[in-house]
Amino acid sequence: MSDEAITAVQGGELFGLEGLGWDAGWADLQHDAEVGAGTDPRAGRIARTHRVGFDVFTRAGRLFAVTKARQRDPMRAPATGDWVVLADVADIDEPVIAGVLDRRSAVVRRDPADRAAPQVLAANADVVAVVQGADRPINPRRLERQLAVAHGSEARVVVVLSKSDLDPDGDVARQLRQAAIGQEVLVTGANSGVGIDELDAMTEGCRTLVLLGESGAGKSSLVNAVLGHEATAVGVVREGDSKGRHTTTRRTLLPLPTGGALLDTPGVRAVGLWPGWADLDAVFPEIAEAAESCRFSDCSHRREPGCGVTGAVEDGTVLADRIEAWRALDDELEATRTEVERKDWR
């Protein structure tokens, strides 16, 4: 998205932070963070990150800010959606991010680079929409990964089917509901307007809605439909496999004229899980329910006697492919924990 597009969405030089979700709780955190921050401390919310700085919405408009030093802990580094305190520092031309306010939620995955580290995709989301396109078959295993990351944020999670005009008989919608067991599902169509009011309503009360999904899933079209104008380029997908190119290249916070915000993300190819930020119970509610009858509280649902989950698989309450998918994700999380422990020990 261009700087001009962000400015157009912002709607002028002055933008009320309350429209982006600023409240008394954030103000209390700001007061604590201002101590020793520098000259003229003021609050802002990160709209977009760059290699050398950050676009930040403030009461004085959109500013470009920097940090004094690179944060070694990826979970403490500023991310799109973060509330921050800016200050003026001697010998630095741009405002400096003096502090990041404690997050209320975070969408976190394992860094797709080959290292044991987390990556924050979005901060302070109230709702995470996991977007699936009706122009391609539903991949249950990919969906489960995306849902695990979304639920790990502790925000409300909605599975959104886009491009419903390409699914006139509702076959893909039925596949999606069968794969998304226990999930809230919303069918939408940017061209027809189906479900757009319901999607827009998720930002009421100045809430932030994050759109998460693979390239070509229709996120950019949904953003434009909610905004009511084209703020984001819409990509072309290949006819053979419905794969799309990245039309959103950076995670971007887009204020809505009536309050609230959309946080658009680039297509997510790698969806690695990060311990503490992935919720398997929310993705596999039938397995979590069956686990309540396990004989042992630390049951791994594999070979233990008296396992309620293996019993549920035998009687058909839990599908065999679902428990296999759960085990694969659980094994992945355990392997990452081991990798992190070894890294910390070194």
Rank of each mutant, 00 (worst) to 15 (best):
L143A: 06
L143I: 12
R145N: 10
R145W: 11
R145G: 00
Q146R: 05
L147V: 01
L147H: 08
A148L: 09
A148S: 15
V149S: 04
V149K: 02
H151Y: 03
H151M: 00
G152Y: 12
G152F: 03
S153T: 06
A155M: 07
A155L: 13
V157Q: 10
V157I: 12
V160T: 13
L161Q: 14
L161R: 04
K163A: 00
K163L: 11
K163N: 01
K163D: 06
S164C: 09
D165Y: 07
D165A: 02
L166H: 02
D169R: 10
G170V: 08
G170W: 12
D171I: 08
D171L: 12
V172D: 01
V172I: 14
A173V: 09
R174P: 02
Q175R: 14
L176N: 13
Q178K: 14
Q178M: 13
Q178E: 14
A180T: 07
A180F: 02
I181F: 13
Q183R: 13
E184I: 01
L186M: 15
T188S: 09
T188E: 12
G189Q: 04
G189I: 09
G189N: 02
A190V: 00
A190R: 06
A190N: 05
N191K: 15
S192Y: 09
V194D: 01
G195V: 04
G195A: 05
I196W: 07
I196Y: 01
E198C: 01
D200G: 01
D200Y: 03
D200P: 08
A201H: 12
M202G: 02
M202N: 02
T203A: 15
E204F: 02
E204Q: 15
E204L: 12
E204H: 14
E204N: 12
G205M: 10
G205L: 09
T208Y: 04
L209E: 10
L209I: 03
V210T: 15
V210E: 00
L211G: 03
L211R: 00
L212G: 08
L212C: 03
E214Q: 15
S215D: 13
S215L: 08
G216V: 13
A217M: 08
A217V: 15
G218W: 08
K219D: 12
K219R: 12
K219A: 03
S220V: 10
S220I: 09
S220P: 05
S221F: 06
S221G: 15
L222F: 13
V223E: 06
N224E: 10
A225W: 00
A225T: 10
V226W: 11
V226G: 03
V226N: 01
V226M: 00
L227E: 14
H229W: 14
E230D: 15
E230N: 13
A231T: 04
T232K: 07
T232Y: 08
T232H: 05
T232V: 14
V234R: 07
V234Q: 03
V234N: 09
V236E: 14
V237K: 11
V237W: 05
V237F: 07
E239T: 11
